[in-house]
Amino acid sequence: MRQWLFALGGLLVWTAHFFAVYIAASLFPGEPLASWLTLGLTLVALVVVGWLGLGAWRVWEARGEDELRPWLGGIALMGAALSAIAILYAGLTAVFF
């Protein structure tokens, strides 16, 4: 179970960010507070995804006897990268447009 959470961590953060931004925009439509909440949530999500991506990079680089470990690190790294792009797209679009 821990390996699944590691591999899908970035995507889970992306999902949580999407719902949190949607809730903020729904509770405070058209208000500056929604933009500030979105900006804050985006920064927090990016920090978490960056932390997960750094851990995935370390696992991906570590070569050992277990052949699954680098593959799992690569999957987690790609998920974190995709999530960071999606979080930036959703968060900054909501703040600036």
Rank of each mutant, 00 (worst) to 15 (best):
M1I: 12
R2L: 08
R2K: 12
Q3M: 13
L5F: 07
F6M: 07
L8H: 14
G10H: 04
L12F: 02
A16C: 05
F18S: 06
F18D: 02
F19A: 12
A20S: 08
V21I: 02
Y22K: 14
I23K: 13
A25D: 12
L27I: 14
L27R: 14
E31I: 08
P32L: 13
P32N: 12
P32S: 10
L33P: 09
W36Y: 11
L37F: 15
G40V: 02
G40A: 14
L43C: 07
L43I: 09
V44A: 15
V44D: 07
V44E: 03
A45Q: 02
L46T: 01
G50F: 05
G50L: 10
G50S: 12
G53S: 14
G55K: 00
A56M: 00
W57N: 13
R58W: 13
E61K: 15
R63H: 14
G64A: 03
G64S: 04
E65I: 06
D66H: 04
E67M: 08
L68W: 13
L68F: 11
L68R: 15
R69Q: 09
P70A: 07
W71E: 15
L72Y: 04
G74W: 09
I75E: 10
A76G: 06
A76N: 00
A76V: 15
M78C: 04
M78N: 05
G79C: 06
A81P: 03
A81L: 15
A84V: 08
A84E: 05
I85N: 02
I87S: 01
Y89H: 11
Y89L: 10
A90C: 10
A90V: 14
L92A: 08
T93C: 05
F96N: 06
F96K: 05
F97V: 13
